[in-house]
């Protein structure tokens, strides 16, 4: 039987995968993809909780509204983020995290 716990574990694993990618990867674009994965994992947890937190016998739609907002915000973040990455690439010809090392104490 599939419980809420199953969904939570899947969401947790996806979140952890994304986090591991953010820490381990050097390609900024892939790091950014991993960040999107983390956001989506959080959305899965939210939707899971909302499905099993019944209000009047229906899923809780305040939580799903938040999911709607997160997806929108994520899209805006991707757009701005990729614009910054493109601008950086134009000056550096690289998307390696290690090329971003001019700022140091």
């Amino acid at each position: 039987m599939i419980t809420l716990g199953h969904y939570l574990v899947v969401s947790g694993m996806l979140f952890a995968l994304g986090l591991a990618g953010v820490i381990a990867r050097r390609n900024i674009i892939i790091v950014y993809m991993c960040l999107e994965m983390m956001l989506s994992a959080a959305n899965l947890a939210l939707v899971g909780f909302s499905r099993f937190h019944l209000v009047n016998g229906l899923p809780d739609y305040t939580a799903q509204s938040l999911v709607f907002f997160t997806i929108t915000v994520a899209a805006a973040e991707v757009a701005v983020g990729l614009a910054i990455i493109v601008a950086l690439f134009r000056t550096k010809q690289s998307v390696d995290v290690e090329s971003v090392t001019k700022l140091q104490g």
């Binding site: 952890a16 986090l19 591991a20 953010v22 820490i23």
Partner: peptide, 9 residues
């Protein structure tokens, strides 16, 4: 990264 992920899971 792997360590953090495993701990989190």
């Amino acid at each position: 990264g792997v360590l953090v992920a495993v701990l989190l899971v």
